[in-house]
Amino acid sequence: MERGDAPYYPVNNEKNNTLYEQYKELAASKAENVIFGGRLGQYRYYNMDQVIVAVLEAVNGEF
């Protein structure tokens, strides 16, 4: 990999999806009453309109 080739967000593949599930389980067991959202919190790429929808769903308990 050359300098600058690293993605700026997680690539949606089996390795990263497995890692996300591990983070999600850890967060659920250690951080009650906390919602992790957005690109980093949900470990996926989002456009801003998708972030807003995800936040609204989380607030409404659909997360």
Rank of each mutant, 00 (worst) to 15 (best):
M1F: 12
M1D: 15
M1R: 15
M1W: 13
E2A: 11
E2S: 08
E2G: 08
E2H: 11
R3W: 10
G4D: 09
G4M: 09
G4L: 08
G4F: 07
D5Q: 10
A6H: 10
P7M: 02
P7G: 04
P7Q: 01
P7A: 04
Y8Q: 14
Y8R: 13
Y8T: 14
Y9H: 07
Y9S: 13
P10W: 00
P10C: 01
V11H: 03
V11S: 01
V11Y: 02
V11I: 13
N12D: 15
N12L: 06
N13Q: 06
N13V: 00
E14R: 15
E14F: 09
N16L: 05
N16Y: 04
N16W: 05
N17M: 09
N17T: 10
T18K: 08
T18M: 03
T18D: 06
L19R: 11
L19T: 13
L19A: 14
Y20D: 05
E21W: 03
Q22Y: 09
Y23Q: 04
K24Y: 02
K24W: 00
K24F: 01
K24N: 02
K24Q: 00
E25I: 07
E25D: 14
E25T: 14
E25R: 11
E25N: 12
L26D: 13
L26W: 13
L26A: 15
A27V: 02
A27Q: 03
A28I: 03
S29K: 10
K30Q: 02
A31R: 04
A31L: 05
E32K: 09
E32N: 05
N33H: 09
V34Y: 07
I35N: 09
I35Y: 15
F36D: 02
F36K: 04
F36C: 04
G37D: 08
G38V: 01
G38T: 02
G38N: 09
R39Q: 11
R39T: 13
L40R: 12
L40M: 14
G41W: 02
G41H: 03
Q42E: 11
Q42Y: 01
Y43P: 03
Y43H: 09
Y43I: 02
Y43Q: 07
Y43K: 08
R44H: 04
R44K: 15
R44Y: 02
Y45F: 14
Y45Q: 08
Y45H: 08
Y46N: 00
Y46R: 01
Y46F: 05
N47I: 14
N47T: 15
M48F: 07
D49P: 06
V51H: 01
V51D: 04
V51G: 04
V51R: 05
I52D: 07
I52A: 11
V53S: 06
V53A: 07
V53F: 03
A54Q: 10
A54Y: 07
A54F: 04
A54C: 12
L56D: 12
E57N: 14
E57S: 10
E57G: 10
E57Q: 13
A58I: 08
A58F: 06
A58W: 03
V59C: 12
V59A: 15
N60G: 15
G61C: 02
E62C: 04
F63Y: 00
F63R: 00
